[in-house]
Design a binder for these strands. Structure first.
Lengths: 231, 231
DNA sequence: AAATTTCTGAGACGCGAGTATCATATTGAT
DNA sequence: ATCAATATGATACTCGCGTCTCAGAAATTT
């Protein structure tokens, strides 16, 4: 038989398969992911070429596994997100559950600060491309995990709050939860990690209590939250 | 829109232009800024080259006025920020003042959505560069306007709140005010402008009321983590 | 009007990201 | 050990951003 090149056949299985794979393919991918994670946790935002050099593989090979910096960041984000996504609180109190979630997630986000900031940057890039119409069927960044996490955290209020209020609370909480909080409180205000945590926790608690107070003011009548209805 | 402008009326330089300049220098700069603003308000995030083409000047000339996309975005941000920075509320009620500020600023931010998102992206770029040590001693993005605006908005509480509480409220409010709100509520949650506005306003109001309530409850001595309605 | 300063346009150039191609090395089944 | 499938590496290429140089056009001065 005639021997011709056929590397193109196995081009697109390198997306995101944490499934049990063996062989050099999985090994190299793992090596690159670990290298990229290590670099990003040290604060860097390496390009594919830089990861290739650090992992001591050729540029060509690196690009075979991660066709762009976006793919690389996405993979590291998934890595860093792991412990957060499996989070479960033991409490039944919404405010405490939210506090738990923040205490779990925010330090993790800070540890992967460069990664999450890169992800935010890439999502903005994607938005700009979509707006300009020059979106070439790209991976489509996720960036919606906080929605489910927060909905789950305040799930105990699902009975006490009207669906409309429940959703609004989740939406408001999503404003004080995530990398954006880091960019605002640390980069603009110059706070340190502990101060940032404190502010975010206070804001989250205040929002939860406000939602509860409002809902109780509606059913019970007079209460300390009477001012809340004037909005 | 209208490209024919007098060169004499050229007092409004934005970023790094030496004060009062006349002649073709100011005219070309103004032409480019108007072109860039128009393009960005239509949702695009043009490169310097693209603005050059749209403004019908050569690439070389364009780069003389705006040495990078960052400089361009910064200039357009200043343009878009104008009406916001001069904002003054007539009310003495902190909550109302905050609501006023939001009602003024957020629509403006939305109108310049592409610009502010580009600015956010560039500030993330800058952070990454600083982190990597490869900062070319160039841009220095501002991005701190919301601090003064919010402090001013809640100024009526300066007497009622302790400095620590006052600062914390301003910091918390800065989380629900700015482009980040747009990226989270519109891009992730899929809300429209009105819904976004409603959520941001509710969150801001809740935070202000929580700060006030806490300060009033302080005479009891206990941290306000307990339910607000337990009187 | 002539001379001088300033502005502009048209290239060439370097650089980094991403793509494509081909030759070689490694693996795994027989 | 052999042979085909597959993984890897070296290299060259495109492309867009930003820099640089230089000659010509415009404006300002005298």
């Amino acid at each position: 038989m005639d021997v011709s090149r056929q590397q193109a056949a196995s081009a697109d299985d390198a997306a995101q398969a944490p499934a049990v794979e063996k062989g050099p393919r999985a090994r190299t991918r793992r090596l690159m992911l670990e290298t990229a994670t290590r670099l990003m946790q040290s604060g860097l935002t390496p390009s594919v070429s830089e990861v290739a050099e650090a992992a001591e593989v050729s540029r060509a090979t690196a690009y075979r596994y991660f066709p762009s910096q976006a793919a690389l960041v996405q993979a590291v984000v998934d890595e860093g997100l792991g412990p957060i996504l499996t989070w479960k609180s033991t409490s039944n109190d919404a405010e405490r559950r939210v506090a738990d979630l923040f205490a779990t997630a925010m330090p993790r986000i800070e540890a992967f600060e460069a990664t999450f900031k890169a992800a935010l940057k890439l999502s903005l890039d994607q938005w700009a491309r979509r707006e300009a119409g020059t979106l070439g069927s790209e991976p489509a960044f996720t960036r919606g995990h906080r929605v489910d996490l927060l909905k789950d955290a305040i799930a105990p209020l699902k009975g006490r709050l009207k669906p409309r209020q429940f959703r609004r609370l989740a939406q408001a909480l999503s404003l004080v939860f995530g990398v954006e909080v880091v960019t605002v409180l640390k980069d603009i205000w110059g706070l340190d990690s502990a101060e940032m945590m404190s502010v975010a926790q206070w804001a989250a608690g205040a929002l939860v209590r406000a939602a509860v107070a409002e809902s109780e003011a509606r059913s019970v009548g007079m209460s300390a939250a009477s001012k809340a209805m004037s909005a």
